[in-house]
Design a binder for these strands. Structure first.
Length: 221
DNA sequence: GCGACAG
DNA sequence: ATCTTGTCGC
């Protein structure tokens, strides 16, 4: 797919913060999907050479049967350090390279990391969604910010993630008795719809099939 | 000032 | 993210 020019990439957290605070106003957290959903994609990153180089992976699966239809990899020197709250600046450049090689444009992309469940409501899922204008969902394996009520052990149960009196996402049990996932809107999708699609992409394991495939591509050798 | 901190 | 074997439990 064709990726149009994105904003210049920052070299300091000050510049990065300004970009987040500017682009956050463009995030859409209501459903604006292109239905029917035929393809869902997962994106993930892996690092090599002591973190000097990064490898982005994209896996496009058919929906709802979740069969792999296309994958791509892209390598690039790591250009930004890992700083909590600024993950997107480290990972998105390579992800864009990998997405550019994809022929099948996905209707929804599940990102590894938070969406609006972020200190400035602009996690990697929001950032990627804004740049490519495709619906995105934040699917994080661990907590970044917010509080929530106790979560039942059964698959499918969820609780809103709250921060400063605002619902910023949800803690979702994708498998009975296993650590929950942190779900939030990335762009052009509501929280409840995001939860619905995440569950529909997670038939057996804790992680959605999209993420599992992308994970494997990004870290295998 | 102290602690927390996606991948 | 990454370094790493066997092992407990469904």
């Amino acid at each position: 797919m064709k990726i149009y020019q994105s904003h210049p990439w920052p070299s300091t957290v000050e510049e990065a913060t300004t970009i987040q605070e500017t682009l956050r106003n463009q995030v859409i957290i209501t459903d604006q999907l292109d239905e029917p959903i035929q393809y869902v994609a997962g994106v993930d990153m892996g690092f090599l050479e002591d973190g000097k180089m990064c490898r982005a992976a994209v896996a496009v699966l058919s929906f709802p049967d979740l069969k792999v239809v296309e994958t791509s990899l892209a390598y690039r020197p790591t250009s930004f350090p890992y700083i909590p709250g600024f993950l997107s600046f480290r990972e998105i450049p390579a992800i864009l390279d990998a997405l550019e090689k994809i022929q099948t444009i996905p209707n929804i992309i599940l990102c590894d990391g938070q969406g609006t469940a972020h200190p400035r409501r602009f996690g990697i899922a929001c950032h990627l969604g804004i740049i490519i204008d495709i619906p995105t969902i934040g699917v994080a394996k661990s907590w970044l910010i917010g509080n929530h009520a106790e979560l039942p052990e059964s698959k499918g149960s969820w609780q809103p993630l709250i921060h400063k009196n605002e619902t910023i996402g949800a803690v979702l049990r994708t498998r009975t008795g296993v650590k929950p996932l942190y779900i939030s809107s990335g762009h052009r999708i509501s929280l409840t719809t995001a939860i619905d699609y995440v569950l529909r992409c997670t038939p057996k394991y804790r992680l959605p099939e999209t993420t599992r495939i992308a994970d494997k591509l990004a870290s295998d050798r």
